[in-house]
Design a protein around this nucleic acid. Sequence first.
RNA 1: GGCCCCAUAGCUUAACUGAAUAGAGCAUUUGACUACGGAUCAAAAGGUUACAGGUUUGAAUCCUGUUGGGGUCACCA
Length: 594
Amino acid sequence: MSPDKFIIEKAKAAVSALYGAELPDASFQVQVTRKEFEGDYTLVVFPLLKVSHLSPEATGKAIGEWMKENTDEIESFNVVKGFLNLSFANAYWAGLFTSIASDAGFGQLPPTGKTIMVEFSSPNTNKPLHLGHIRNNLLGWSVSRLLEANGHKVLKVNLVNDRGIHICKSMLAWLKTGNGETPESSGKKGDHLVGDYYVAFNDMYRKEVDELVAGGMSREEAEKNAPVLKEAQQMLLRWENGDKEVVDLWKKMNSWVYDGFAKTYADLGISFDRTYYESQTYLLGKALVQKGLDMGIFEKEADNSVWCDLTADGLDRKLLLRGDGTSVYITQDLGTAEQRFGEYNLDEHIYVVGNEQNYHFQVLKLILKKLGFAWADNIYHLSYGMVELPEGKMKSREGTVVDADDLLEKMYNTARETSLELGKLEDMTEAEQDKLFRMLSLGALKYFIIKVDPKKTMLFDPKESIDFNGNTGPFIQYTHARIKSILRKAEDRGILPDSVPEDAGLSPKEIRLVKLIDMYPDKVAEAGAAHSPAIIANYAYDLAKEFNQYYHDTPVLREENPSLLQFRVTLLSVIARILVKAMDILGIGLPERM
RNA sequence: GGCCCCAUAGCUUAACUGAAUAGAGCAUUUGACUACGGAUCAAAAGGUUACAGGUUUGAAUCCUGUUGGGGUCACCA
């Protein structure tokens, strides 16, 4: 049993025996004893005063004495103000560590039987992925892994936004100015090629608007009447009517984009269990509109548009169906939610979407609830903050976006330069080196993004390269490589990490490590409940840092006492194992050497 | 303007449901490789947790207000 749970159990018994009172678990707060005090774990006694009717010091002393008398595990205690600091016997830590070392599934929580769908990425097919998408993708991926570690069954899904006026804009510009350019003919990655035509469209559009304004039209009118915009709208109508020429072009250009995305996803190490396409789901939800009308919770205007009035809930009136009967964004979201909960019998559905859509998801949940769906409460919007540049928001129209592929390449080069400079890889093949540089650059990038609390807006300065020292992914990767190096040497000497001798007395630093190791499953649970991989990232850093401090002045292979040597080799292997598991949740690989 | 989110050291950030002297990293200054791997370690310096009240034995954390920043309130997605 973990020490904190053990203390709570015994403290309850102590309170019961000493004061004849039963208090809920919440009254027993246990924390790791701060460095400056003596002890392993600390019980906060303030909440217990109401039943002890004694001073904090007297209460702490009484409980401490009771625990020392009535357990073998608690060896000594001291009381500082309202804090009861408890010290465990050395044998307790050895025993705890032994049970962890022999548990191969340590950190994987038992199956819950729940199925959770996580929707993330959800790109538009008119431009390449940028840094904002990277945050989304990494967050979605790591949350999925985190929920799996929590024992849930997870379905990772992507909803590709492959239809609409914005797609037609790229198509139109390509028809007008492309001269039949293809990814093969130009050597450009498909998503970048199509993105270039989206930019080209906007250039044409702006020029036409300016000309109309110069000709005496108001800017507002001009923006509605620019010929290329009209043409794009025409094209969308033709697409919706199944016009073969338009649909064929749409298919061709989308396939270029999908090829490009596939490469970026592969580079990021991301995959999905299922991909949905809006072109196939955008008509969903219309039946729900009728249902809402029948229930009397929606209302139809004179022009036939349908609305849901949410003003009583402090929100606005929301459009659900246009006057011409076509649906809007939220309509299909209502429909897809119903479809997914029905098809997969989901216990929870998480949407990884930027915080600019907070309002949208508030409305979505509320309308589903009004429609009588009990599962509406099981929708969770994992809202994350924007990635901003020093000069402010990224704007694709102004060309100030940080392109995902560019960034990955830049990171790769940095990893390569740093590694070659240190020159420890001479005997590696080119292919092995390439794999390593990829692992390190991704580790740096992923950790950089994931360690930050998702809901915070984060700043990225392209001029300052992402660090490889300090609280970073490579720091943890380096720690792992060092441990593996030692374990390889131990193995050569026939020392394998499998058993812990009874007589291995643990040093204070080793006890600190065992405490941290023991916390891992709790961290997985805590991070899972909070939908926050950042908690795992910070835990892995703490463990790696603690290990580096320990390692610096504690010999392992040069230890002469065979029991201690055996224990330390096992300790290292357990730390390496946990680092691998924790970083795997973040989608970060750890190298054997670097 | 209504509603929502955010504000911690020069910068990037941590602190589970309130708990002891608010932890790290980067940058700065200094020290440690004939050593199991220096992408490391040790140390110095750096804080009125935006501001003002309130609740509490105890507040970065909860409540109210103020300031600053962001988002949103489309027959866009």
